[in-house]
Design a protein around this nucleic acid. Structure first.
Length: 1042
RNA sequence: GGGCCUAUAGCUCAGUUUGGUUAGAGCGCUUCCCUGAUAAGGAAGAGGUCGGUGGUUCAAGUCCACCUAGGCCCA
C-alpha cells in the first residue's frame, strides 16, 4: 500500500527529513559501494579554496558536479568521488593577516612563521566546515572522509615529486624577469592570478618634454627641440634610462602654434597638435638612434644612458611614438635596454616604496609619487600635457593593491617549451560548450607564457629545491629522499615552512652545505596536481592512480579556464605527457536579479543556505540545471526559483498525491496486477509511450552533458502527465480502474527515476511513499535504483502523433467556444472536424475530444456537409520548394488559382492532381504539397489553423439547455462538497427546493446522473440539515454527509 | 588592439545546428472558461523593425559579411 501523500507540501522540511534518512541509512556510501567492480567513471572535484564563506555561485558548479555522477551511477558505473580542499596560498594568509591586524610581511616575520602557519591551518579547518554544511544541504554527494587536503603531508610530497620530474626535464628554472608584483603582499603574481585582478582606474596620462642635448646635430638644426614622450606611469620617469622609437615609422620635427619645436611620430602629430602646426623635417626612426637627450629627473645615478634606441614593439597607435624606457619596470623595456647594454636601475624597494636615499620621493609609495613628480615637471616647464586617463590596470586579486611590474628573481616552469604538446592535449579534450576549446581556452594556450611558479610567502608548498653556495641545485621528491640526502631521518618533519627550511644537506655535487631556497609555490600548482597528489602517488596508491587517470568529467565555472582547467592540464601534461581530463563542462557565471555580478560590495549576495531553506535545494538545483543556458551568465533571484517550485516540482508532487489518494481509496496495490499495456485504453498506451521516449531522450541529453534539454523534456512530460493524462482520465481513477492506476504508477516510476539526479530530495520522498512500500525488491533509496530500462516495445510514434492532433483539435474547439461565448459546461449537439489524419483517428481518441469539448457527436466536415463549407487551398512551400526551387512562387500561384474544392476532393482520396503552370509546365501535386482548409458557413463557430478546422454547431435546444443546467447543478454541488471539507469518497444526502418549474423538470430528467456524479445516496425534494450550497440558479441545495 | 559570448514580447528565456511564408513559452496585465488532485489548467486580447545595414536565396529570426551595444577574458 502506498503511503498517504498530502496535497500540500513543505519542500524544505521534506528535504531535511530526506537528509536525515540518507544519513541514517548511509545511502551515498552504499550507492558507491554497490557499484564496485563496475566500469569506472572518473570525476575530479576541483578543490574550493577553503577561505571565506561559500556563495550561491559555489552551488552552481556543485549541482553539475553532482548530477552527472548520480546519473552515471544509475547507468551502472562506479563513480567514487572525493571532496578536496585547496588549503594553501595568499587568500588564506591574507585572511589570517587581517584577523591578526597585520599590514605586511614584516609583521609575520616578527610573529613567527611557525605560529603564523599554524593560524593558517586553523583558518582552513574553520572554513571547510562552512563548505561542508552548504554541500550537505544542497544534496551534493561527495566523500568528505576521503577528502584530499593540499596541505596534507602526503599531498605535499606528491607535489614535490612532480616538481622534481619537471626539474629533471629541465623545465624548472630561476630567472630574473620583469613580472607583476604585489608590493603589499611582497610577492610576484602568476599570469592566471594577474588575469583575475584587472580594475579600471584613472591614472595620470602625461606628455613630457625631454630636451635634445644641445650638442646633437638635430638640436643644432632645430634649437630648443624636445622629444615628446608619453607615459601613464609618471613614477617610472625617475628611472628613465632611454627612449625607444619604432625604426620603420616616420618621425617629424614639428613647430606648434605656440612656436615650440617638438619631435613626434608624424602620423600622431594631428592628434597631438591639431591642424595648426608645421612639419619642419621628417626622417625614419632609424635616423634617431643614439640621439642623446636631457632626462626628466636626476635623482638616481644611471650611467651611460639617456639616448634614443630602436624597438619594433613601439606603436604609433596612440601616445607620441616615443616610448619612455625604465627597464626595471617593463618586460619589453628590459629586453630592449639589455640589447643596448644599459644598466637596470631600480630605486623602488620590494615593499613598493622608493629607497630612502632618493631625493624628493624617498620613502614614498610608488603610486603616491606620481603627484609630486607631476608638480615638479610642471614647475620646471617640462610638462606638455597632463590629462586623466581611464584604463584597465592590474591589481592584486586579493588585496587590490595596484601591481608594479618589477624586475625580480623568480622560479619559472617553462610551459612555453611544451606549448605544442598542450595544444595537442587540448585537441583531445571535449569542451562543453565547445566554443571554449578554440576560443577562450585555445587562445590562452596559444599565447602561453612561462608559469611564474614561486611566491615569496609562508603558507604554501615549499619549493623543494636545495642550493649550495656554488649554486648547485637538487630537487627533492619526498621526505624519505630528503632523509637520505640529509643523512638523518626527517620523515616525521612537517614539510611546511619553517620546519623544512631548517633541514640542510651536503651538496651532492660539491659537498658544501645546501639550504632550501626560500620560496613557496603558487597554490594553483597544488590544485593542478590533484589527480595524483590526492592519492599520494607515486609514494602509494599506484594501482588506484592507474585506474583513475585521466578523469572522464570535470566541471567548474568559466573563470577556471586560466585557473584550474589550465593548471590541471599543464601539470599533468608536463609530468605524465597526458592531460588529466576528457570532458570538461564550463559554466557561465551567476548574476543577481538585475544582471550584476554578486559581490559583498554591492550587498547583492544570495547566501545559499537561507535560499535553500526558503525554496528548497531541489528548486535551486533545478534552476541551475534547466533554467536558461548553463554556459551563459544567468540571473538568480527569488522569483525565478519560486517559479521552478510552482511550475515543475508542485505539478509533479500533486500528480503523486493524486495517485496516492485514489489508489488508497480504491485499495489498489501495484502487485494486484493490471491488464498488459497493449490491452489498456489508448490514452494509457500513449502516456507509457511518452514516458519511454522521455526517459530515452533525457538519457541521451545527459550523455552529452545537456541538462537544459533534459530539464525541458522532464518538465514537459510532467506537464503532459498532469494536465493531459490525469485530467482526461480522472473518472477512471474515481472508479479505481486498475489499468489507469497501473499506468500512472508506471509513468510516475519512470519520471521519478529520471528526476532523481536533478531533484534528489523530492524524488527520494516519492520513492519512499509510492515505490519502496509496494515493490518487494525495491532498493531502499531511489538513488540505489538503476536508470529506467529502455522498452522500445512500448513506444508508439503513430499514437504520439495522433494524440498531438487530438490536443490541437481540442485547442481549436476551445477557441471556437470562446469566440461564440458558449461556455464549456453547456453541451452542444455536434462538432465538425476537418484535418489530415482525422479519418485514421481511433474512436477512443475522438471520444477524448468530444468529452473535452462537451459535444455529443463529432463528425467529419468533408463527408456529408459539402454544401456547408468553403474550401481554400494554399501551397506548402516546404515541400514544393524542395522540388521547384526558383519556380516555387509560380506553382504556388497556380495552386491558389485552381478550384480548391475539386483539388481537395481529389487529394483527400490519396490521388494526385496535375495542373498546368505557366513557364513550368505540368506539375503533379500530392496532398503533401497543399494545405487544404475547410470553413463552414453560417450558424457555426469555426476556428482553423494550419489546415485543421473545428466547427461547433451552436444550436441549443431545450434538451441541451437543460443538460447544461444539470451540469451546473453538479458543479455547484461539487464545489459545496469541497467547501464542506468532505473526502472525495464520502457519500452525501442532498435536499433541494425551488419555485422554478424548469429546474424541477431538469432535476427530474437528470436526477440519476446528478446523484451519481456527486456521490449522493439520496437526492430528494424538501428541507434538511446540512450545508447550504451557493449557486446562481434559482434553487436551494443542502448537503449532508451520509 | 585581439579572442570569445550575448542581443527575439514590459521582464526572464526557447527557437537558429538542418532556411519554408501566422516567431513561441513562462511571469505580469485585461476578459472569459474549466475545476472530484493541483499554490493548478484552458481560450482570447494587448504587447515583436527577431540589435542595425548589406548580401546569398524563389524564400532569412535561422546562412554570409560588416557595423552597433552589452558582458567575460586577454593586451
Amino acid at each position: 500500500m502506498y503511503r498517504a501523500v498530502p496535497a500540500q507540501v513543505d519542500l524544505p522540511a521534506l528535504e531535511h527529513e530526506v537528509l536525515a534518512m540518507w544519513d541514517d541509512e548511509d545511502v551515498f556510501a552504499e550507492s558507491v559501494r554497490q557499484a564496485e567492480g563496475r566500469p569506472l567513471w572518473v570525476f575530479y572535484e576541483g578543490p574550493p579554496t577553503a577561505n571565506g564563506t561559500p556563495g550561491t555561485h559555489h552551488v552552481e558548479a556543485r549541482v553539475f558536479k553532482d548530477v552527472f555522477p548520480r546519473y552515471r551511477t544509475m547507468k551502472g558505473y562506479y563513480v567514487p568521488r572525493s571532496a578536496g580542499w585547496d588549503c594553501h596560498g595568499l587568500p588564506v594568509e591574507l585572511a589570517v593577516e587581517k584577523e591578526l591586524g597585520f599590514t605586511g610581511k614584516q609583521d609575520i616575520e616578527e610573529y613567527g612563521v611557525a605560529e603564523f602557519n599554524a593560524k593558517c591551518r586553523e583558518s582552513v579547518l574553520r572554513h571547510v566546515d562552512e563548505f561542508t554544511d552548504m554541500t550537505r544541504r544542497m544534496g551534493y554527494w561527495v566523500d568528505f572522509d576521503g577528502a584530499y587536503w593540499t596541505m596534507d603531508k602526503d599531498y605535499v610530497q606528491s607535489v614535490w615529486w612532480s616538481l622534481k620530474q619537471i626539474f629533471d626535464k629541465g623545465l624548472l628554472s630561476q630567472d630574473h624577469r620583469v613580472a607583476p608584483y604585489c608590493p603589499r603582499c611582497g610577492t610576484g603574481l602568476s599570469d592566471h592570478e594577474l588575469a583575475q585582478g584587472y580594475e579600471t582606474v584613472v591614472d595620470p596620462s602625461v606628455y613630457v618634454r625631454f630636451p635634445v642635448r644641445a650638442d646633437e646635430d638635430l638640436a643644432k638644426r632645430h634649437p630648443g627641440l624636445s622629444l615628446l614622450v608619453w607615459t601613464t606611469t609618471p613614477w617610472t620617469l625617475v628611472s628613465n634610462t632611454a627612449v625607444a622609437v619604432k625604426p620603420d615609422a616616420t618621425y617629424a620635427v614639428v613647430r606648434t602654434a605656440d612656436g615650440e619645436t617638438l619631435l613626434v611620430a608624424e602620423e600622431l602629430a594631428p592628434a597631438l597638435f591639431g591642424e595648426d602646426h608645421t612639419v619642419l623635417e621628417t626622417f625614419p626612426g632609424t635616423a634617431l638612434e643614439r640621439v642623446r637627450y636631457e632626462r626628466p629627473f636626476d635623482y638616481v645615478d644611471i650611467p651611460d644612458a639617456h639616448f634614443i634606441l630602436l624597438a619594433d614593439y613601439v606603436t604609433t597607435d596612440d601616445g607620441t611614438g616615443l616610448v619612455h624606457q625604465a627597464p626595471a619596470f617593463g618586460a619589453d623595456d628590459l629586453v630592449t635596454c639589455r640589447r643596448y647594454d644599459l644598466p637596470v636601475v631600480n630605486p623602488v624597494r620590494p615593499d613598493g616604496h622608493f629607497a630612502s636615499d632618493v631625493p624628493v620621493v624617498g620613502d614614498m609609495f610608488f603610486k603616491k609619487a606620481d603627484e609630486t613628480l607631476i608638480a615638479d615637471l610642471e614647475q620646471r616647464g617640462l610638462m606638455f600635457r597632463h590629462v586623466p586617463y581611464e584604463h584597465a590596470y592590474p591589481h592584486c586579486w586579493r588585496c587590490h593593491t595596484p601591481l608594479i611590474y618589477y624586475a625580480q628573481p623568480s622560479w619559472y616552469i617553462r610551459t612555453t617549451a611544451r606549448k605544442e604538446q598542450l595544444l595537442a592535449e587540448n585537441e583531445n579534450t571535449n569542451w562543453f560548450p565547445d566554443t571554449i576549446k578554440w576560443g577562450r581556452y585555445g587562445d590562452w594556450l596559444t599565447n602561453n607564457v612561462d608559469w611564474a611558479l614561486s611566491r615569496n610567502r609562508y603558507w604554501g608548498t615549499p619549493l623543494p629545491i636545495w642550493r649550495c653556495p656554488d649554486d648547485h641545485l637538487v630537487a627533492v621528491g619526498s621526505l624519505a629522499e630528503l632523509s637520505e640526502l640529509a643523512g638523518r631521518d626527517v620523515t616525521d618533519t612537517d614539510p611546511h615552512r619553517p620546519y623544512v627550511d631548517d633541514i640542510t644537506i651536503p651538496c651532492p655535487t660539491c659537498g658544501a652545505e645546501a639550504h632550501r631556497v626560500p620560496e613557496v609555490i603558487d597554490g594553483w600548482y597544488d590544485s593542478g596536481s590533484m589527480p595524483f597528489a590526492a592519492l599520494g602517488y607515486p609514494h602509494r596508491n599506484a594501482d588506484a592512480f592507474a585506474q583513475q587517470f585521466p578523469a572522464d568529467f570535470i566541471c567548474e565555472a568559466i573563470d577556471q579556464t586560466r585557473g584550474w582547467f589550465y593548471t590541471l592540464m599543464a601539470v599533468n601534461t608536463l609530468v605524465f605527457d597526458q592531460s588529466s581530463y576528457r570532458n570538461v563542462v564550463c559554466l557561465g557565471h551567476i548574476l543577481d536579479e538585475d544582471g550584476r555580478k554578486m559581490s559583498k560590495h554591492l550587498g547583492n549576495v544570495l547566501a545559499p543556505i537561507p535560499l535553500m531553506d526558503e525554496h528548497g535545494a531541489d528548486a535551486l538545483r533545478w534552476f541551475m540545471l534547466a533554467s536558461g543556458s548553463p554556459w551563459q551568465a544567468r540571473r538568480v533571484g527569488h522569483t525565478a526559483i519560486a517559479d521552478v517550485v510552482r511550475k515543475t516540482l508542485l505539478t509533479y508532487w500533486n500528480t503523486v498525491s493524486f495517485q496516492s489518494l485514489y489508489a488508497r481509496t480504491a485499495g489498489w496495490e501495484p502487485a494486484a496486477g493490471a491488464p498488459a499495456p497493449a490491452d489498456r485504453p489508448v490514452i494509457d498506451r500513449w502516456v507509457l509511450s511518452e514516458a519511454q521516449q522521455m526517459a530515452h531522450e533525457v538519457d541521451l541529453a545527459l550523455e552529452s552533458f545537456d541538462t537544459q534539454r533534459a530539464g525541458r523534456l522532464l518538465s514537459s512530460f510532467v506537464d503532459d502527465l498532469s494536465n493531459w493524462y490525469v485530467r482526461r482520465s480522472r473518472r477512471r481513477f474515481w472508479d479505481g480502474d486498475p489499468a489507469a492506476l497501473a499506468t500512472l504508477h508506471e509513468a510516475l516510476r519512470t519520471v521519478t527515476l529520471c528526476l532523481a539526479p536533478f531533484t534528489p530530495f523530492i524524488s527520494e520522498r516519492v520513492w519512499q511513499d509510492l515505490f519502496r512500500p509496494t515493490e518487494a525488491d525495491a532498493p531502499r533509496s531511489v538513488h540505489l535504483a538503476p536508470w529506467p530500462a529502455w522498452r522500445p516495445e512500448l513506444v508508439d510514434e503513430q499514437l504520439s502523433a495522433q494524440m498531438d492532433l487530438v490536443r490541437r483539435l481540442v485547442e481549436l474547439g476551445r477557441a471556437a467556444r470562446a469566440t461564440a461565448t458558449v461556455r464549456t459546461r453547456q453541451p452542444l449537439r455536434r462538432a465538425l472536424v476537418s484535418a489530415p489524419g482525422w479519418s485514421a483517428l481511433p474512436d477512443d481518441l475522438r471520444g477524448q475530444i468530444a468529452e473535452e469539448l462537451n459535444v455529443l457527436t463529432l463528425e467529419s466536415l468533408g463527408e456529408e456537409s459539402a454544401g456547408l463549407v468553403d474550401v481554400s487551398a494554399k501551397a506548402n512551400f516546404r515541400s514544393l520548394g524542395r522540388r521547384y526551387a526558383k519556380q516555387t512562387p509560380l506553382v504556388a500561384e497556380a495552386i491558389a488559382a485552381a478550384d480548391p474544392a475539386g483539388l481537395a476532393t481529389a487529394l483527400r482520396s490519396g490521388g494526385t492532381v496535375t495542373i498546368e503552370v505557366p513557364e513550368v509546365g505540368s506539375v503533379e501535386i500530392t496532398d503533401e504539397d497543399v494545405v487544404v482548409t475547410e470553413t463552414p458557413r453560417e450558424g457555426w463557430a469555426v476556428v482553423t489553423e494550419g489546415g485543421e478546422s473545428v466547427a461547433l454547431d451552436l444550436k441549443i435546444d431545450e434538451e441541451l439547455r437543460r443538460a447544461g443546467v444539470a451540469r451546473e447543478l453538479v458543479r455547484a454541488l461539487q464545489e459545496g462538497r469541497k467547501t464542506a471539507g468532505l473526502e472525495v469518497s464520502d457519500r452525501i444526502l442532498v435536499r433541494w427546493a425551488t419555485d422554478d418549474p424548469d429546474i424541477v423538470r431538469t432535476i427530474n430528467d437528470h436526477r440519476d446522473l446528478i446523484a451519481a456524479e456527486v456521490l449522493a445516496s439520496s437526492f430528494e425534494e424538501g428541507d434538511g440539515e446540512g450545508s447550504t450550497i451557493e449557486t446562481d440558479l434559482p434553487v436551494t441545495l443542502v448537503i449532508q454527509r451520509a
